[in-house]
Amino acid sequence: MSRLVSVLVILFLFAPLIATTLISFNATPTFGFPSQGLSLRWYANVFARPEFWVGFRHSLLLATLGTLAAIVISTLTAVAVVRFRFPGRSLMNALVMSPIVIPEVVLGLAILVWIYAVLDMPGAWALYLLHTILVIPYIVRMIIAGLQGYDINLEHAAMLLGASPFRAFLLITLPSLKDHIMAGAIVAFIVSLHNFTATMFLVLNRPTLPTAVYQYIRTETDPTVAALSTLLLLIPLSVVAVGRRWLGLDRMVGR
């Protein structure tokens, strides 16, 4: 019984991915099946349409900068929260984790209203800010877990061998947290790359990949997006590969 449900669930989850892959090779501009001949024209179209490439570069940039900023902020925050006891510690922990439970429309609209009403800040900055806020919980949670499981004696040993506290952390502790930081960064990168709802509030005339795809789906009905979707499967495939090889899949899904 549970085996049957499991198979059906997996099939249900994979059906959209399988369907897009099948359709992407259609020769005709329809979503029909069985297809009338095979073709790679939609793949060619992905590269012919400038908005996908523009959106992809924008998304990569956002995800990269947001994730890098979040790694730095999260590492410092995790050190403070794990290594020190101070007033406001649990409040701080709750605050950096809170974006995960704030509805995206709330965050997106709040920043939109704030930026234009209060600061009159250029829009590009607002997106970087949003994406950094969005991904911090995923990284900070991972680094806190890493620091809590870390043997502090290693850092002490380094200090007693003559390393300053900063060097001991940099040369001994940080390399030990490498896997946790990597796992957090990968999840964060993908969350940022795929973010749609909050991002929609702050994209102006420069689309991200999801917003470009969304516009395309709304205006065109041909399998170009299916071809793009098939190409983009490389991303989760490489996540699974990296997760299985080095980081552990359990950790990737936040457990």
Partner: peptide, 30 residues
């Protein structure tokens, strides 16, 4: 005087060897 200036060697109960460094690299660290 902070620990790293005390010139005190310490052997920890669990030895606290740096796991990502070889024996020689552990020794050369100091």
């Amino acid at each position: 005087v902070p620990p790293h200036h005390r010139k005190v060697g310490m052997v920890f109960q669990n030895y606290a060897l740096f796991p990502h460094r070889t024996v020689a690299e552990n020794i050369a660290f100091g």
